[in-house]
């Protein structure tokens, strides 16, 4: 979400203009974060629609072969890792707001690790599936869910990782000032980004619980 500010401050911009554009930039990060949630919502909504549609039509009595269930231990692992990632991201944000950059960084790196573990298990789960993709409606939607979840985990982990990496480098760039305290534009932009990210991670947490219930609980 910080794709934005650097490259086009007009060379002759007055300080007022720069401040005005900067406020727009912060607003864009806010709006963009929420809009990203909107995009993800519509994507997951189509998956949920597929799930409930196939479940209620139960074509050929093949919504789900009795006893068919995705590996539960994998499901729990992935869910917990995603929740840890989301929770730590949000926790890190709240600590950052209180001025504890180190907490944010530790929480962030842990969250990234959790995201990577979730990613690993989410991919590996495909290897140990006890059914083949076309065996039922449930199996098919599950495979689609896995693909979508992989995309979500990659994106969320990426966002968290870039935020933490940015916080490390920012400190150098600011000449040692801590990013949560500086009023430099880069630092404010960074904080806005973390704020949007924590909203997004919260959303990911909710989504992961919802879809866990749909796919892993019979």
């Amino acid at each position: 979400m910080t794709d934005t500010y650097k490259d086009s401050t007009a060379p002759n911009a007055t300080p007022e203009e720069r401040e005005f554009e900067f406020r727009s930039h912060i607003g864009s990060i806010w709006t963009g974060g929420r809009l990203a949630i909107g995009v993800a919502t519509f994507m997951y909504a189509s998956l949920a629609f597929a799930y409930f549609y196939l479940r209620s039509s139960n074509n050929s009595h093949l919504w789900r072969i009795p006893g068919q269930l995705a590996p539960l231990y994998y499901g729990w692992t992935i869910l917990i890792c995603m929740l840890v990632m989301a929770g730590l991201g949000m926790y890190g944000h709240s600590r950052l707001r209180k001025g504890f950059t180190n907490d944010f960084q530790v929480a962030g790196w842990t969250g990234v690790a959790a995201g990577l573990i979730a990613l690993f298990f989410q991919i590996w789960e495909l290897v140990v599936l006890p059914f083949y993709p076309g065996s039922s409606g449930y199996a098919s939607t599950f495979v689609a869910f896995v693909v979508m979840n992989i995309m979500t985990i990659v994106f969320a982990t990426y966002w968290l990782e870039t935020a933490v990496a940015r916080s490390l480098r920012l400190r150098k760039e600011l000449g040692g000032t801590r990013p949560e305290l500086s009023s430099a534009h880069t630092a404010r932009s960074f904080r806005a980004n973390v704020s949007s990210m924590s909203y997004y991670l919260g959303y990911v947490g909710i989504i992961s619980i919802g879809f866990f219930l749909m796919f892993y609980v019979q």
Partner: peptide, 14 residues
């Protein structure tokens, strides 16, 4: 997968 295949639990209506 069989998301759009009626015979295997999917649905072309989807």
């Amino acid at each position: 997968t069989s998301l759009y295949v009626n015979e295997h639990g999917g649905s072309s209506y989807l």
